[in-house]
Structure formats: C-alpha cells, structure tokens
C-alpha cells in the first residue's frame, strides 16, 4: 500500500512536470487556432490550452501581413546548407581525427576541443569585421560559411567513429577500397545515428539563430524566421493569435525533423555519450 502511494506521488509529480513543459506549446497551438480576441481573455484559465472554436484565420493573417514564405525559404536554405555541408565537412574532419595518422593530429584536435568552450558571442565582433571586409554582409554566404565547420559536431563524429570496429575499415582497404571509398561506402552507412544526431543538433541551433543574422543582415531579403518573428512581434497592431500562428509554423519543421529521425538521434546520442 505504501509502495503504491509512493509510486502514485512520483507519477503525479512527473505528470505535473510534463504539463509545465508542454503547456507553452499547447498554449501556442491552441492560441493560433482561436480568434484573436479570445486569446488574451482566456489566457489566465485552463481554456487557454484548448482551442474551443477552431479557425485558420490567424495563419492566413500571417501570410497577408508579412512575407512569411520568404523568411521560411531563407531559413530552410541557410539551415539546409549548414546542415548538409556541416555533415560532410565535420564527418570528414572527425574521421581524420579518429582514424588517420598524420603529424600534428593530436595537437589540432586539442585546439578543436578548446573551440568547444568559446561561445559565438565572444567572437561575433571580430567575425563581423572580417565578413564586412570581405563584403559578405547581407548575403546567405555570411549566414552559412562561418557555421559549417563546428567543433561540437567534429567531436561527436570523432567519438562515434572511434567506437566503430577498426576491422571494418581494414577489411574495406584489403577489399580494394581507398580512404575516400572506405569512408563513403563503409563508415558513413554505419554511422547513421551520429549523422542524425549532428543533423538535428545543427538544425536546431541554426533554425533558431538570431544574434548573428541580426548583426550581418539589414534587408529582409536574406533574413531568416527568428528575425521575421521578431519583426512581426513589433508590427502593429499586436495580434497574439497571429504571433502564435507564426510560432507554430516556425516550430513545425523542427518537430517534424525530430519525429522522422528520433530513433537514430536517440541511438546516436546514446552511442556517443553526448547529452543533447
């Protein structure tokens, strides 16, 4: 009986905790489907979490009030490029650090690990000067290139590759494959969890990037969604339902990506011992 009570209390506590985490998302989704006038009225009650009268009006409003499609395509292009190019570059770098023998390897890997602890904010200003000198401001390139090579991704790939049986590569070499062919045909297909983890983590970081795009872009043409929602937020009149709809459309791709790659992502994070 006592055990049952303890378990019950634990489950109750966990459910409350889950609700705390999920409530903002429910609020956003429900709010995005309500007439704008009801959003604030119901904000203080549990009804805020339920869409009592479903309408897609807010979504339509977003498209009519700002060029949402442009922001979305910019975000997809920038994030997609960073993810795809990042996977190629960082996986190769991780492999070179994990498996290939070359002079200065350990020293360089030490430097890569050191970069892990330097936040973007610390190098944002010198980086800004650099890209200004190169004439990169207000371009896609400035939002993509600096984020392709990523110390954390290299570290994650490195850790995963170290865990793959060395014999697989040796067998491939004996079977006649060179280094690149071994990497592409043997290593990559067996490191899908690592690729999924890096892809998702990079996507999340890049999808929500705000500070750097704000610094290096001034026109709307190349700005991504986070800057879009910031601008939308300040666009009169203040319409919470519209803002929630914008938010839902901004979060949806992330959730979709996570749902598709969830299995590999969890395996990758577990295998590399990295906390997401």
């Amino acid at each position: 009986m006592k055990r049952w009570r303890i378990n019950g209390a634990i489950y109750l506590g966990l459910m409350v905790l889950a609700l705390v985490f999920i409530a903002p998302i429910l609020l956003m989704v429900a709010g995005s489907l309500k007439p704008d006038a009801r959003v604030l009225i119901e904000a203080g009650s549990w009804r805020a979490l339920l869409p009592d009268s479903v309408s897609l009006q807010n979504y339509g409003d977003v498209f009519s009030r700002v060029d949402f499609t442009s922001y979305l395509l910019n975000s997809l292009w920038i994030t997609g490029c960073v993810v795809v190019l990042g996977l190629i570059v960082n996986a190769m770098a991780g492999y070179a650090f994990a498996r290939m023998q070359w002079r200065g390897r350990d020293l360089l890997f030490g430097l890569v690990l050191m970069i892990l602890i330097i936040p973007l904010e610390a190098i944002a200003v010198p980086l800004f000067y650099q890209v200004t000198l190169w004439g990169w401001r207000d371009t896609y390139v400035v939002q993509i290139v600096p984020f392709i090579a990523n110390a954390f991704s290299i570290y994650l790939f490195h850790t995963y590759f170290l865990g793959l049986p060395r014999e697989l590569e040796e067998a491939a070499r004996i079977d006649g494959a060179g280094v690149l062919r071994t990497f592409v045909s043997i290593i990559v297909p067996n490191a899908r969890p690592a690729f999924a983890s890096v892809a998702i983590l990079t996507f999340l970081t890049q999808w929500g990037a705000f500070l750097w795009p704000l610094m290096v872009t001034s026109g709307e043409a190349v700005r991504p969604l986070p800057l879009g929602i910031a601008a939308f937020y300040t666009l009169p009149p203040l319409q919470w339902g519209d803002i929630f709809a914008f938010g839902v459309m901004m979060v949806a791709p992330v959730l979709l990506l996570f749902l598709v790659f969830q299995k590999w992502f969890v395996r990758g994070v577990a295998a590399t011992g990295v906390k997401g």
Partner: peptide, 17 residues
C-alpha cells in the same frame, strides 16, 4: 593493402553490417 592482391578473413569476420 589494396595493391597487394591479398584477401583476409578477420577474427570477428568484419562483415559490412
């Protein structure tokens, strides 16, 4: 290795999974 025209059977087989 790829230029020696040899083939090897590994202790743990090393089949491509």
């Amino acid at each position: 290795p790829q230029q020696r025209d040899i083939a090897m059977v590994f202790q743990n087989y090393a089949l491509y999974p």
